[in-house]
């Protein structure tokens, strides 16, 4: 069985047998068709699939899900890079890509869980127009019911067993799901002593301040560079679209360095301002595009980013894991 359009399926499994029912034939069919097959699954499931595939196992690329699902935007970037590198074979002929991708949901905060759900939904946009096939196993024994419920809303299809699937009646359009993810927003950070006001032409000042703050926390050189670049790009965006000035607030806790960039917007615009871009920074930009790389970079360099983009005032909050392993 092979399909030419993008397929994104959820596989809700409650046992090892159900996991194999849903994945083994999928992988074998892919190998038979000459597809690249990548399995990013829980370590226990690597063992199951590896054994079931027998001597064909070495044709499948296995990655432990814990090593892959680090942060939603970076994982999307990684899949994108993987697909860009594998969509043709050694002779340049087009080749199908099949992915078994099992996101990690345990030990996630409510914010992280929400962003991973958003990620699942955004895959439908990011890979629309490709012929890739992504199958996402969800372990119903271990996962809270809320996560299983979200899976049927973020996947257009449910995988039911070997070569069997059904359209998902509860699938939600990614734009609507995206908006739903943003219905609850964290309150803006209160003013603090590390606040850095910024304005047009002052981005170097912001870079000095954020760099000093990061160094003061003792974070690595690499992470400091990432924070400086991500904050700079957000500030430049804010100055460009948010009325020319704003404030950067810096916080940290045991887990994250948090940088919040807010601006007052341009309420007195003479004409209706253009609507903010859809899915800002979530989708891989064309390298030759005239814009759109800034927010993509911000999301690739941060671990989590929340953004409220509004002509009457925007707030972007960036989270950088202090012990991030990249």
């Amino acid at each position: 069985m092979s399909r030419t359009r993008f397929v994104h399926q959820a596989l809700c499994y409650g046992s090892d047998d159900e996991f194999l029912d849903g994945t083994l034939t999928f992988a074998r069919d892919g190998l038979d068709a000459g597809d690249t097959v990548l399995a990013v699954v829980a370590s226990h499931n690597i063992g199951l699939l590896d054994e079931a595939l027998g001597d064909r196992s070495e044709e499948v690329e296995f990655v432990d899900a814990n090593d892959w699902y680090g942060s939603p935007s970076r994982t999307l970037g990684r899949y994108n890079a993987y697909c860009a590198a594998h969509y043709t074979d050694a002779t340049g002929r087009p080749r199908g890509i099949r992915v078994i991708g099992e996101p990690v949901w345990s030990d996630r905060t409510a914010l992280e869980v929400r962003e991973w759900m958003r990620y699942e939904s955004l895959l439908n946009i990011a890979f629309a127009g490709t012929g890739h096939w992504i199958l996402c196993p969800y372990d119903t024994r271990a996962l809270p019911v809320g996560i299983i419920r979200s899976a049927v809303r973020t996947h257009p299809e449910l995988a039911l067993g070997p070569r069997q699937s059904a359209h998902c009646g509860r699938y939600v359009d990614p734009a609507d799901f995206y908006a739903e993810c943003d219905t609850t927003r964290p309150p803006v950070l209160p003013a603090g002593r590390d606040d850095v006001p910024f304005a047009r032409g002052r981005s170097a000042h912001v870079r000095r301040a954020v760099s000093a703050y990061a160094r003061g926390l003792g974070v690595s050189e690499q992470l400091t560079h990432d924070i400086v670049t991500a904050v700079h790009e957000t500030v430049v965006n804010s100055v460009r679209h948010g009325g020319g000035r704003g404030v950067l607030r810096l916080r940290s806790d045991s887990e994250y360095v948090i940088c919040e960039i807010s601006d007052p917007g341009t309420p007195a615009a003479p004409s209706a301002p253009p609507p903010p871009p859809q899915f800002p920074g979530h989708l891989p930009p064309d390298p030759s595009a005239a814009n759109g790389h800034g927010m993509w970079v911000v999301r690739q360099l941060s671990d989590l980013a929340t953004q409220t983009l509004d002509p009457t005032g925007s707030v972007v909050r960036l989270y950088f894991g202090r012990s991030a392993v990249l």
């Binding site: 690499q222 990432d226 670049t229 891989p284 930009p285 390298p287 360099l301």
Partner: peptide
């Protein structure tokens, strides 16, 4: 860190 920026944007392969 600049090479990393180029990788992330795909500008290492243009």
């Amino acid at each position: 860190h600049i090479q990393r920026l180029m990788r992330v944007t795909g500008w290492d392969r243009v």
